[in-house]
Design a protein around this nucleic acid. Sequence first.
DNA 1: AAAGTTTGCTAACGAACGTTAGGTTGCTTA
DNA 2: TAAGCAACCTAACGTTCGTTAGCAAACTTT
Lengths: 192, 192
Amino acid sequence: MEVTLSRKEQIEHTATALFKKRGFSATSMRDLANQLGIEAASIYSHIKSKEEILQRVCFRMANEFFEAIDQADVRDASASQRLQAAITAHVKVLTKNTEASAVFLHEWRHLSEPHHAEFLALRYRYEEHFREIIRAGIKAGEFKVPDEKFAVLTILSALNWIHTWYKPEGKMNAEEIAANLATMLLNGLKQT
Amino acid sequence: MEVTLSRKEQIEHTATALFKKRGFSATSMRDLANQLGIEAASIYSHIKSKEEILQRVCFRMANEFFEAIDQADVRDASASQRLQAAITAHVKVLTKNTEASAVFLHEWRHLSEPHHAEFLALRYRYEEHFREIIRAGIKAGEFKVPDEKFAVLTILSALNWIHTWYKPEGKMNAEEIAANLATMLLNGLKQT
DNA sequence: AAAGTTTGCTAACGAACGTTAGGTTGCTTA
DNA sequence: TAAGCAACCTAACGTTCGTTAGCAAACTTT
């Protein structure tokens, strides 16, 4: 299953790796060019600006997260089941591309307006999906939570650390990680 | 309870706020000077380099976390109680200074060697404290966890998002947040 | 009143930055 | 075989960067 990347996609891919490792601001176009084996000025045959790369990565990942969560949502299921499905979908996207995920999670703040505001709005909408599940769970007496915003932030932060340590060749695959995280968040550490 | 800060401490404090907001690399000495109402070159009457500020913040916070967790550790208690105490201690440090915490958590990677390696070693030692508690809990049959490293990473990432939203004037104080997080992580979301 | 310390200034350095202009090479398509 | 295009080059632009040198004023201590 060899996929041939266009030069623009290669640039984006290499830049993503550098943005994750060093951060957007600490990555220079000359660093990126060096990694690609070309001159910095040559990059501008393919992209308009350094920030364009960041924009493409951030909004592409936002799309992937939305698609995953929409496909995974099972109507007429319990809140626990829905939450488990959402967690699994989220973890799958996160593990499928850890580098782009890291950029999505940490480097979006370097977006300039109006992209910055647009990104925040998307993120809010994404989180709202989780909040809605938690609210439904509280209403049904399924969950016991002091505040749904608090719960969602805690859940997502627990998930969003994965990209720092996940390796495809590690002993847990994405599904196992998702299952373990869902169990831990839903049932806690304590032996039952 | 007015505390007079030395000029050096003022610089450190203002820099910390900027490092949190924009990141270390995206914060220039001229930004910092502007915020302080002086010229960039004047800062060098008080500090040796930009990175010195980062070093001081990172290692001071590391110290604070260690002190908090050492004081909070109760021998001859159950693993649940010890974990609850450790979580509370961690959250207290985190909420006491959200800006320095953000720098501690996200900007340490801009440290140069050997400080970078030294910082990582400290962090490993800190996390080891949590791992030891989890291991004790598993051994005593108190916790049901697939992997103690996995559990600790999940716990700490759930905690380490607090600095992004915590406001001292918010409806939950540090103790309530700590209690809610400990309950959620130990018992899960589900109604019992 | 003298000496020392703190705090700041202006001017400037060399380096690195993102980006543009204009040109060359080689492959692909009409 | 000519035209078009993708990919990359060198040279350079204007700007910003962290930092140093050298000096001056103000406050504190002796």
